[in-house]
Simulated assay, not measured.
Amino acid sequence: MTVLDHKRLGPPALDVIPHPAALDLSAVRRDVDAALATFLEAKEQSAPGPELPPLIAQLRTFLTGGKRLRPLLCVCGWYAGGGEGDPSPAIRAAAGLELFQAFALIHDDVMDASDARRGRPSAHRALASAYTANGGPADRAEEHGLGAAVLLGDLALIWSDELLHGASLTVRSPEQVLPLLDEMRGEVLYGQYLDLQTTGRLSDDVDTAARVIRYKTAKYTVERPLHIGAALAGATPGVRPVLSAFALPLGEAFQLRDDLLGVFGDPRETGKSVLDDLRAGKATVLMALAVQRASRREMRSLRARFGRRNLNERDADVVRAILESTGARQTVEDMIRTRRDEALTALDHTPFPAAAVAALRDIAGSATARHA
Results as ranks from 00 to 15, higher is better:
L4Y: 08
G10H: 10
V16H: 12
A21C: 11
D31Y: 05
D31S: 14
D33K: 13
A34N: 14
A35V: 08
K43C: 15
A47C: 05
G49W: 09
P54N: 05
A57D: 14
L59S: 02
L69Q: 09
P71E: 05
L73H: 01
G81Q: 02
D86S: 04
P87Y: 04
P87Q: 07
R92S: 10
G96R: 00
G96I: 03
L99E: 01
F103H: 11
A104F: 10
L105Q: 01
A113R: 15
A113P: 08
S114D: 06
R118A: 04
R125T: 08
N134L: 15
G136I: 02
G145K: 02
G145C: 04
A149D: 03
A149T: 05
A149V: 05
A156I: 06
L163F: 04
H165S: 12
S168L: 03
L169K: 13
L169Y: 10
T170M: 14
T170I: 07
R172D: 15
E175D: 15
E175F: 06
Q176P: 09
Q176H: 14
V177C: 02
L178G: 05
L181I: 13
G186S: 14
G186C: 12
L189W: 10
Y190W: 12
Q192T: 12
G200I: 07
D204N: 11
D207G: 14
R214P: 09
Y220C: 05
T221P: 05
T221E: 01
R224S: 11
P225F: 00
H227P: 09
A233C: 07
T236S: 15
L248A: 06
R257L: 03
P267Y: 07
R268H: 13
D276F: 03
K282I: 02
A290V: 01
Q292K: 12
R293Q: 08
E298R: 06
A304K: 12
F306C: 03
F306P: 00
E313D: 15
R314D: 15
D315V: 00
V319W: 02
E324W: 09
T326F: 00
Q330V: 10
Q330E: 14
D334R: 09
M335I: 06
A356K: 01
D362L: 12
G365L: 14
R370T: 07
